[in-house]
């Protein structure tokens, strides 16, 4: 059974159809890249999977880990192991990174019936993770994303992912706004999380990230549908020739 199975998914935003029949199967252990021109529905797909308000599913289904994902509330999806690394992570003033993560991790533990961490144990745990990822401790002490540069925000998303250990990680344009060094740090973090029980959907515009996070499959999303799939060479092809020729071919 695949970890994620999306069948004929249709979704609207403000009454406007964006996803017009997505079909996608992702097995555990795989990394799929989703590329496509602006406005194709990439972010919409990630929000629909995460369960954001305002994104209305008008048809199709999503089976995640054998469960009907669309029936679960967003926090339930998170506790079941779905993680979305946001393209534009929001600021939460006054809430330290560690506090935020502790609430998140404990919410998941409570859901699973596992004892929760107390503040001291948690700090140890999370510092360990930050160290593994080569990330500075101070990111945890500062308020979540407040005053963070674009790169710091993306690293913070990666750290959260490492701490929450999701089964399905959806990375929404994680590489946008990153310089080469930040890109490497994030890519290393993502790669460190690859594993046989885990699947990833890497949404990106550019080939660049995929040099470091090598995908098993690449899909092109345009106009609300996946119009072409292939292996990593498809990404290279897009890089050379752009989307136009693929869009023409699909029309």
């Amino acid at each position: 059974m695949a970890l994620l199975e999306i069948r004929d998914l249709h979704a609207e935003v403000d009454g406007k159809p964006i996803l017009k029949g997505i079909n996608l199967t992702v097995e555990a252990g795989e990394v799929h890249a989703i590329m496509g021109p602006n406005g194709s529905g990439k972010s919409t797909l990630s929000y629909v999977l995460a369960g954001r308000d305002g994104y209305e599913v008008t048809g199709g289904e999503v089976i995640y880990d054998g469960k009907n994902l669309l029936e679960l509330a967003p926090e339930e999806r998170a506790c079941e192991g779905v993680f979305l690394a946001f393209q534009y992570p929001v600021e939460i003033p006054g809430v330290a990174g560690t506090t935020f993560l502790r609430h998140a991790v404990n919410a998941k533990r409570k859901y699973q019936g596992v004892p929760e961490y107390d503040a001291m144990e948690f700090v140890k745990f999370v510092r360990g993770k930050a160290k593994d990822l080569n990330m500075p401790d101070d990111m945890l002490k500062r308020a979540v994303n407040v005053g963070f540069s674009g790169g710091e925000k993306k690293r913070n998303e990666t750290l959260q992912m490492a701490v929450l250990e999701p089964k399905l990680a959806i990375l929404d344009e994680t590489d946008s706004g990153l310089d080469i060094d930040a890109l490497k740090v994030v890519a290393d973090g993502v790669n460190a999380l690859r594993g046989p029980e885990r699947a990833m959907l890497v949404i990106t515009h550019y080939q660049r990230l995929l040099d470091y996070v090598v995908p098993d499959k690449v899909h092109v999303l345009a106009n609300g549908r996946i119009i072409k799939s292939g292996d990593k060479s498809l990404a290279l092809e897009l890089e050379e020739r752009g989307y136009a020729h693929i869009l023409e071919a699909a029309a």
């Binding site: 809430v95 935020f100 998140a104 919410a107 959260q160």
Partner: peptide
Amino acid sequence: ISDDQLFYCLSRGMSAEDAVGLIVNGFCKE
């Protein structure tokens, strides 16, 4: 409390009440 902030917390597994409590405590921290 912006919808974005709330959703950010929900997407990390917190319930809406937990999220509001967290955000408000952050607001009152000083």
